[in-house]
Design a protein around this nucleic acid. Structure first.
Lengths: 237, 237
DNA sequence: AAAAAAAGGTGATATATATCATATAAATAA
DNA sequence: TTATTTATATGATATATATCACCTTTTTTT
């Protein structure tokens, strides 16, 4: 019987079913569990910086992490928001490159760290797992292609509307026929997701509010008219 | 001894050393060679369309292929230009998704097709090869993150200057202290790479020419001042 | 609680670039 | 060759959005 010095063992981890570890055989889960390290992080903390060398992967147990790049003008482009079950840093690890982005905690998080060798060994000893990871990498490429195309071909208004819909999908809480985005983001961060200036986000949000598409409740945004936003976003699905 | 019905066997393929197949063991190379299919393609032909199902991977022996997405406004966003040694379609295959982009021949090409099962089997039977492929996928993600950040944070002028430098790196032929981009691209295609309107590319190229950064020789662009373009592109390296 | 800092908000303004129109040049077809 | 289509070029114009300035509100620090 293996010992599990670092809090909850992976075998019992509630976020595992959302992760790439979900259908790993028991033996390998235990092995990873033995070598992992669970750390609590507070909002604002940096998990890793762009340009530094990855020493393992992170697996999010709870909380939200923003993955971003700092452009030459100093602004942040947020690549995506990661949450429960998401892996971080495995692309850099597998790419044998330094981190291509930085990661900062957006909502207090518990995150496991799995050292490089342990992770790589699981891949090499379990082709099905490796394939699952490759599938995830591949999927990510398609997502990025879409983001690039949107960035060059859509207006800021369209992109903001679309970002709100996505945030609703990921962090939405239904209530009163509306959907509240249950995640605190500054206007600057929303601008970083959309890829625009903070003032533009503020102005457009006011406009959306005036047009009864959204409502502002403190820092949180409530989506009142999903179809309206979808129409605005030029996203028909 | 295995038979090689489809032209040059991979063992003797001159473009292999540039590809992910470069350090595959002899036995596996031969196996792939037995199942591959070499096809010649003319400029303008479509290799595959976005949204269709991948049945294998393509390996470019010669020629140039543009990989692009068609935006909702009908414009093409060119994701990248692929050339000798590049693999196409393996992300969709590994992602178990339909193609996220389309591929069109830009310069007459010879391209091998390797059926899905043959490719997947080589991966599963050779973890080192799998790792190499995963490395390539991972690298691609980092590249896309950079492109996204550039698209949202840099001006068209900066991006065009940078694209010209890149085209020079990939397709440049030195001569008379200058560098000729030896690839025929329409202004519309350059616009598709940069992510802008055709007229903007035409105007900016005229400007660059006036500023003695480039020269136009028929359809081809000659780079006269790399440092000048680098300065303009906000890319210091 | 007071002070300081950070975030949110709004107006004024500048400007890069998209769009539309039209002309010329080049490539392709008849 | 001539005709037709396509690509390149340039001007005029509109406009979305970045930038700057300033104010208010909220949050954090002391």
């Amino acid at each position: 019987m293996s010992s599990h010095p670092h809090n909850t063992p992976c075998e019992l981890c509630s976020s595992r079913k959302f992760s790439l570890f979900s259908d790993l055989p028991e033996a390998q889960i235990c092995n990873i569990s033995d070598h992992k390290n669970l750390i609590s992080h507070r909002k604002g903390q940096i998990l890793y910086y762009e340009g530094t060398k990855p020493l393992g992967i992170f697996c999010i147990n709870s909380g939200v992490v923003k993955i971003y790049k700092t452009a030459s003008n100093g602004k942040e482009q947020i690549i995506h928001l990661a949450q429960r079950g998401d892996f971080l840093g495995y692309a850099a690890l597998l790419g044998e490159e330094n981190y291509s982005n930085s990661a900062m905690i957006l909502e207090d998080a518990k995150i496991c760290f799995v050292p490089k060798e342990v992770f790589i060994n699981s891949l090499l000893h379990n082709p099905q797992f490796f394939r699952r990871v490759a599938k995830s990498l591949s999927h990510e490429i398609g997502v990025m292609e879409g983001k690039l195309t949107d960035a060059t071909q859509k207006s800021i208004r369209e992109r903001l509307a679309y970002v709100l819909l996505q945030l609703g999908n990921s962090y939405g809480v239904e209530g009163g026929g509306n959907q509240k985005i249950d995640l605190i983001l500054s206007r600057e961060e929303i601008a970083g997701i959309v890829g625009t200036a903070t003032e533009s986000v503020i102005r457009l949000l006011s406009e959306f509010k005036k047009d009864n598409l959204i409502e502002l409740e403190g820092k949180k945004i409530i989506i009142k008219d999903r179809r309206g936003l979808a129409r605005l976003s030029d996203f028909y699905a």
